[in-house]
């Protein structure tokens, strides 16, 4: 009953205008003539500047080398590959766990990306060496559309927050280069018939 009394008292209303907002979001975006070009704060993420990417503003790529378990490769690859193979006879192959499920056999093999003569680098199809931090350059040779989306921002995950300097993940941060397809798996939470 108290509430009734309270509500009864509400007949005399103050006149309040609702917040009016411009309904055209894209127009707002278009009208933002002052581009926000202020330097972005550093991301604090170990990264390298992306190289060889054109048409987009400079950005950084998550550093890869420190993430690798068996690097530098030259710590094992002290001899040419053929001699190493001879030495290993009878033992389990060093990269036994690597199964190439990337493209058809007649398209690529280990040597398509890994030059026999320089274990610590990758190589382009033309044989140009590419550092492991810039492995995206190797991927981009075939996956041009993905590379374009990645450089622009619609493919891949951003490593830094939205406000900081742009650092994106390397291709190999998410995709296993030897089996790049994402796996199928069970959802992270069980069935919910949440209402």
């Amino acid at each position: 009953m108290k509430y009734l009394l309270l509500t009864t008292g509400l007949a005399l209303a103050g006149c309040v205008q609702p917040p009016r907002s411009d309904p055209h979001v894209l127009a707002i975006v278009r009208r933002a003539s002052q581009p926000d070009t202020a330097p972005k704060p550093p991301s604090g993420i170990a990264s390298v500047r992306a190289e060889g990417i054109e048409g987009v503003r400079e950005f950084a790529v998550a550093e890869r080398k420190s993430q690798l378990k068996r690097f530098p490769c030259a710590s094992c690859h002290t001899l040419p590959l053929e001699q190493l193979r001879l030495k290993q006879t009878g033992k389990k192959a060093a990269h036994w766990d690597v199964e190439l499920r990337h493209a058809a056999e007649n398209v690529m093999s280990c040597a398509t990306c890994h030059p026999a003569e320089d274990a610590d680098s990758l190589r382009t199809l033309q044989g140009k060496p590419v550092g492991l931090n810039h492995s995206y350059q190797v991927c981009a040779q075939c996956h041009a559309a993905q590379a374009r989306d990645w450089a622009g921002g619609s493919h891949g995950r951003r490593a830094s927050g939205w406000a900081a300097e742009r650092v994106v993940n390397n291709c190999a941060s998410c995709h296993n280069p030897h089996a790049p397809a994402l796996p199928s798996r069970w959802p992270a939470i069980p069935r919910t018939d949440s209402r």
Binding site: L10, A11, A13, G14, P18
Partner: peptide, 22 residues
């Protein structure tokens, strides 16, 4: 309650309803 709180009139039809009912 206008003054103490916020009576979102005329934006909210519920505010209108409170007004007309009372």
């Amino acid at each position: 309650i206008p003054g103490l709180g916020i009576f979102n009139f005329p934006s909210s039809l519920l505010a209108w309803d409170i007004l007309v009912l009372n």
